[in-house]
């Protein structure tokens, strides 16, 4: 079946780094990282259902240094994957596919996800009394 001379898509190493492929890889990376986050989401839901002590243990870990760092990563990943996902859905229906527009929405995606992440944590720290 597999013939040695069949056309192959270019290997990753051959690409010049630019916005488009960087953001594409970041979409995958944030997606995989968010998949890991589902463990914590489900763990949190189970802890709530298990009772006060289990909940406090999970909550303390999430508010600790490692937990907080992970939550920061997950909120950025969520907002980035969301914004870039909407960009992808636009492409699926044929919107913004030309090079200039794709580059512009790429940078827009980065800026919006950083702003949303900062806004989220500013609100959380101001309102949550941490």
């Amino acid at each position: 079946m597999a013939r040695a001379d069949r056309p192959l898509s270019p290997h990753l190493g051959i690409y010049r780094w630019q916005v488009a492929n960087g953001l594409s890889i970041l979409h995958r990376a944030t997606g995989v990282f968010l998949s890991l986050g589902t463990l914590v989401l489900i763990g949190w839901l189970i802890a709530v259902a298990s009772g006060y002590q289990a909940y406090v243990r999970v909550n303390d870990w999430l508010m600790g240094p490692l937990g907080a760092l992970l939550l920061l990563g997950w909120t950025f990943s969520f907002f980035y994957h969301l914004c870039n996902g909407i960009r992808h859905l636009g492409w699926d229906i044929g919107l913004g596919f030309d090079k200039e527009r794709a580059r512009m929405t790429g940078w827009l995606t980065v800026v919006v996800s950083v702003v949303l992440t900062l806004g989220f944590w500013a609100t959380a720290l101001a309102g949550g009394g941490a």
């Binding site: 406090v56 859905l89 949550g128």
Partner: peptide
């Protein structure tokens, strides 16, 4: 794609609802 579209409102809802609960007591979250 279908799950992606559904997760736009569901994800945003959860993340912003979690803002109100972040330091919530167990009873409030329950």
């Amino acid at each position: 794609r279908l799950t992606a579209v559904a997760l736009v409102p569901l994800g945003l809802w959860f993340v912003f609802a979690a803002l109100g609960l972040e330091h919530g007591q167990h009873e409030i979250v329950r």
